[in-house]
Design a protein around this nucleic acid. Structure first.
Ligand SMILES: NC(=O)c1ccc[n+]([C@@H]2O[C@H](COP(=O)([O-])OP(=O)(O)OC[C@H]3O[C@@H](n4cnc5c(N)ncnc54)[C@H](O)[C@@H]3O)[C@@H](O)[C@H]2O)c1
Ligand SMILES: NC(=O)c1ccc[n+]([C@@H]2O[C@H](COP(=O)([O-])OP(=O)(O)OC[C@H]3O[C@@H](n4cnc5c(N)ncnc54)[C@H](O)[C@@H]3O)[C@@H](O)[C@H]2O)c1
Lengths: 209, 209
DNA sequence: TTAACAATGTTATTCTTTTCACAATAGATA
DNA sequence: TATCTATTGTGAAAAGAATAACATTGTTAA
């Protein structure tokens, strides 16, 4: 196993994993790299290269065994009983995300939510009771959860991040438009929709020239 | 001006632009590359390299003139009176995004929303009346809007994308977890939160080893 | 049995992006 | 004025990612 796999490869493997599960639902047993690659929107060469890192090997004539490859990727991710996460900031975006991940979605369950607004505290939203955010440390014991999502206003994001780090959280999805400072043993994925939209607008202008 | 600027550079320039506006609000007149870079979470060398593409040049002793650099980036983006966009899918996520962009946010206004659910049609949400999605072509005239956001279930996303493309839209933000097939003159930014979260979970596991 | 085929695993190559390094420069200092 | 300092702009080097190329291999069919 290579000591470090790139973020891009992890994203694609996760995507392949999802597509493979869809294929399984449709009772497809085998798939060729170029077929799966087309569904994923990548090249076959890249898919094969990504698949290398999980150690699974397909057959030149049958292609990949859907079930086996799916298992190999799951095994590579080594996420046995599904990850749990906490979410801080039960505003518009926080509620949408909670609905999404705690809906029919099986994996990665959000087990606790927090907000500072007294009107939201103790309300149960999407099977998740909203707790006061200054009680995080009491409700979630250190090391209990590895992943956190931040959907509070930009001004509060760093403070929340510090609290999550203190809780022992090692991965953060940050939707607030600020760069978070965290220790090197914490992974931050910054999702800045305003920037993404500006980018889309820029390239849209480029395209119709 | 280089004919093609990378997506990464556009994202960072947009980020710098935002940070420069914040500095202006605080009446800061000059800033050094390493200061701005720290706020942005990138290296100073990278920032300087990005700034090259907009053609602005700073002073070795004063650094960058905040106002001038901000103007230079805005000018490079050449987005005169602010972009407009349409949004299809007024579910949980669609409403959150609408609230976000049509709130105090000045730029990039969502001018029309669509949904197929009769219960949602004609309801006014965040200053935006929800129209029936099969009437897009009647409500938005071709070429009127350049950017679209898709927040419908995965199964409906490609169909919606086709309709947007037919409308002359050149840039799409797609939140549905599917790869969209569009003509080469349309730019698609796929935002797949489930994949992002899986990635965070993976690296969180890696980190605490 | 063996040749032909089509798809894989993997190495080599190309292309892109980031980092490094440093000459050039504007101002501050004496 | 001459010198010193800190920062810029940018070519060159390094690192990283995608693509191409091809030898290898399991299967089919003559
Ligand atoms: N809504 C979107 O689609 C969207 C898009 C892009 C980015 N964002 C970002 O996501 C964040 C949330 O956006 P939103 O639209 O949901 O805003 P929102 O105002 O609807 O929700 C913010 C929530 O955070 C809570 N909060 C504030 N300070 C807190 C604290 N210290 N601890 C715990 N909770 C706290 C508030 O009570 C509120 O419920 C913002 O940073 C915003 O910039 C949102
Ligand atoms: N909610 C989230 O945080 C979240 C996160 C990641 C991805 N997504 C994706 O975003 C999309 C929307 O998610 P959501 O949680 O808002 O779902 P949702 O079910 O709340 O909303 C979907 C909306 O789309 C409408 N719709 C369905 N078919 C349509 C059509 N053909 N034309 C127009 N409107 C149509 C529905 O009436 C509904 O209002 C999904 O693809 C989902 O996978 C959502």
């Amino acid at each position: 196993m290579p000591s470090m796999v790139s973020e891009k490869t992890i994203e694609r493997l996760s995507l392949f994993h999802r597509l493979l599960k869809d294929l399984q639902d449709d009772d497809v047993t085998h798939v060729y790299s170029h077929q799966l690659a087309t569904k994923a929107g990548v090249t076959a060469a890249q898919l094969r290269r990504d698949v290398m890192v999980v150690g699974y090997t397909g057959s030149p004539s049958k292609g990949y065994d859907v079930k086996q490859l799916s298992l190999s990727i799951a095994n590579f991710f080594e996420d046995p009983e599904g990850e749990t996460a906490v979410l801080v900031g039960m505003g518009n975006l926080g509620r949408a995300i909670l609905a999404y991940f705690n809906g029919r979605r099986p994996k990665l369950h959000i087990v606790a939510c927090f907000d500072s607004d007294p009107h939201k505290i103790n309300r149960v939203i999407h099977n998740c009771r909203c707790h006061p955010s200054d009680k995080i440390g009491e409700i979630v014991s250190k090391g209990e959860v590895r992943v956190g999502a931040i959907t509070v206003p930009a001004a509060a994001a760093q403070k929340v991040a510090d609290e999550l780090v203190a809780l022992g959280i090692k991965g953060i999805m940050n939707f607030a438009p600020v760069h978070l400072k965290v220790p090197p043993d914490v992974f931050v994925e910054g999702i800045d929709l305003a920037l993404s939209l500006e980018k889309v607008a820029y390239f849209a202008r480029q395209k119709n020239k």
